[in-house]
Design a protein around this nucleic acid. Structure first.
Length: 589
RNA sequence: GGGGGUGUAGCUCAGUCUGGUUAGAGCGCUGGCCUGUCAAGCCAGAGGUCGCGGGUUCGAGCCCCGUCACUCCCGCCA
């Protein structure tokens, strides 16, 4: 409840209405706008609650009127006066307080202001770097503040909902140790231990598992996480996770709990999350949408055309199938009249995404088919293609013939690109669980297996026996919460058996001594009565971004960094003195 | 590390393709007038390292090379 308690005011500006008529009120805030009519001055007074019109009339107070002639936008003032109904015909229906005004009896300047670097509360989209440099001015825009308010509501709701379900919030260290795998660490030199470094946490993953071993059973934390990687519109070097872990649970328990909590959280943004959420296996998501975080707000699903073209005379198709690949396609509805150059651009996108080429067939008008390859198709194949992709006049079919995963991924990229190009409507919230991720993936560059999620993910019980024999076929108890094509959160059941954890680390290339050195403390904990456990971590910034309808994570962070990781306001990162470097035993290049 | 976009007045932008008088507009700002406005109005005025450096040219905001910042994307982000 934001009101005038504990302040020098009697009321807040935005709360005034016809119910206050006749009352003498004291307000404080910023000069939003001044309209000087010579013999009468209007000032819009702004505080966090909103705007109210103050009227300075020399007949009411000559002293206040003289002050009003001096004041300028963003000056900080305190006003006392009587609330009255506005004269007939001067009501402002666009203003919450538009039925009333305050006739000022006395006024005081609490602080002056230079002319602000940009105008507040205009429709003008000001350069973001400038807004960030003067973020404290920018935040006076209700739109900017509203995002922080929504973030607060969401955060508080997480706390309440989790607390009601028996979770306790525990803080874990910010100064930790660097662990292999994962993102690049931010590192902090240790003064007391020359040559050694702390690492800032990429997530509290290991600590929350240790809390489960410690019998906490239900833990959560609104945790700051740090990753020294390149930035994106939805990625900052420091970000916040709602980190959750539970003991004695199945995957279904975690998902059910999370759905209930998410339903309550999203109500804060007036979104009715329909539960239970739809579930889709990783394999299905890749097959149907070419992505492990499919945007279900539009269709354009991938269709498998391999059997249709099993006997194709088209060499590209035949050789792809011959080497065990697939032929898959999507129907870009309404792009049938695209020019050759626009389609060539699509081809380039396909090449960049890893395909060897893009096959396409356009159906611009009745009886007309444009395609460099349709001449290789039999009538049956053409009819089958139309049926498989439900082709209508004006459609454009895009096909990729390649290895199964390449065909899926490339078409997934093209699907999103075409949705942008065709400006497909993408409204509302489409959330789902993507489940059953493979435990490992093959890292061609490193010529080794790496963890798909993280090294502590528990494989399917029925796959444990064949871990070493068929690593890539091992599925895991894992789940990502996907909303509107964004990964909002992800989690797994964890390995709670030390021997199994050792085997997995072994497959990941950590021999026994390396595993002991790097994860010895975890392995020891698992051997001292670790309960079965699992959990999830949600990206709070991304979630609020989606709920606020913003396209950048920076809009929901009070003081975000630019894409080079700099803070335009404070100038961070900055240099340090030689003395500071000496203290931590570092030398400059 | 790679690719695309942007950079001109305090702010938002036009001017750049096709080099040529003193670089413009709206908003804001300053001053004046004005007692019912609410993006107040009218009049006047101030305000420019055309991101930075170099080059081509008689002449560069405009062409060329380099560089910086911001931004979007790829790589990266277990």
């Amino acid at each position: 409840m934001f009101d005038a308690r504990y302040s020098i005011r009697s009321h807040v500006a935005g709360s005034l209405g016809v119910g206050n008529v006749g009352e003498t009120v004291t307000l404080a805030g910023w000069v939003h706008r001044r309209r000087d009519h010579g013999g009468l001055i209007f000032v819009d007074l702004r505080d966090r609650s909103g705007l109210v019109q103050a009227v300075f009339d020399p007949d009411a107070s000559g002293e206040a009127f003289v002050m009003a002639e001096r004041i300028r936008p963003e000056w900080v003032i305190k006003l006392t006066g009587q609330v009255r109904l506005r004269p007939e015909g001067t009501v402002n229906p666009n203003l919450q307080t538009g039925e009333v005004e305050v006739i000022i009896a006395s006024a005081e300047v609490l602080n002056v202001s230079e002319t602000p670097p940009f105008e507040i509360d205009t429709a003008i989209e000001t350069d973001e770097t400038l807004r960030l440099k003067y973020r404290y001015v920018d935040l006076r825009r209700p739109e900017a503040l509203d995002a922080l308010i929504l973030r607060d509501r969401v955060t508080q709701r997480f706390r309440k909902s989790l607390e009601h379900r028996g979770f306790i919030e525990v803080e874990t260290p910010i100064l930790g140790r660097s662990t292999p795998e994962g993102a690049r660490d931010f590192i902090v030199p240790s003064r007391l231990n020359p040559g050694e470094f702390y690492a800032l946490p990429q997530s509290p993953q290991l600590f929350k598992q240790l809390l489960m071993v410690g019998g906490v059973e239900r833990y959560y934390q609104i945790a700051r996480c740090f990753r020294d990687e390149d930035l994106r519109a939805d990625r900052q070097p420091e970000f916040t996770q709602v980190d959750i872990e539970m003991s004695f649970v199945t995957q279904e328990d975690v998902l059910a709990m999370m759905e209930e909590v998410m339903h309550e959280v999203m109500r804060e943004a007036s979104v009715d999350l329909v539960t239970p959420l739809r579930r889709m296996t990783y394999a299905d998501a890749m097959d149907r949408y070419g992505s492990d975080r499919p945007d279900l707000r539009f269709g354009m699903e991938l269709a498998c055309l391999s059997s249709l073209f099993a006997d194709s005379e088209f060499k590209v198709f035949a050789s792809a199938l011959g080497s065990g690949g697939r032929i898959k396609g999507i129907n870009a509805r309404g792009a049938g009249d695209w020019s050759r150059s626009k389609i060539d651009a699509l081809n380039q996108i396909a090449l960049d995404a890893g395909a060897k080429g893009l096959a396409w067939v356009a159906f611009p008008t009745e009886g007309d088919v444009r395609s460099p390859i349709a001449k290789f198709f039999t009538d049956e194949e053409m009819a089958g293609l139309k049926e498989a992709l439900d082709v209508e006049l004006g459609d454009l079919v895009l096909m990729i013939a390649d290895a199964h995963d390449v065909a899926n991924e490339v078409l997934g990229v093209l699907r999103l690109h075409m949705a942008d190009e065709l400006e497909l409507e993408r409204e509302g919230f489409e959330a789902l669980w993507v489940v059953d991720f493979p435990l490992f993936k093959w890292d061609a560059e490193e010529q080794s297996y790496s963890a798909n999620h993280h090294p502590f993910t528990r494989p399917f019980d029925e796959h444990v026996g064949s871990l070493e024999d068929h690593p890539l076929e091992t599925l895991s108890y894992s789940y990502d919460l996907v909303m509107n094509g964004l990964e909002i959160g992800g989690g797994t059941l964890r390995v709670h058996d030390a021997a199994l954890q050792r085997r997995i680390l072994g497959i990941l290339g950590h021999d026994e001594s390396k595993a002991e050195e790097e994860f010895g403390f975890l392995l020891e904990a698992l051997s001292l009565g670790a309960p079965p456990h699992g959990g999830i971590a949600l990206g709070l910034d991304r979630l609020v971004m989606v709920l606020a309808g913003k396209s950048s994570i920076r809009d929901v962070i009070a003081f975000p960094k630019t894409s080079s990781g700099a803070c335009p306001l404070t100038g961070a990162p900055g240099s340090v003195s030689s003395r500071q470097l000496r203290d931590v035993h570092l030398k400059r290049d």
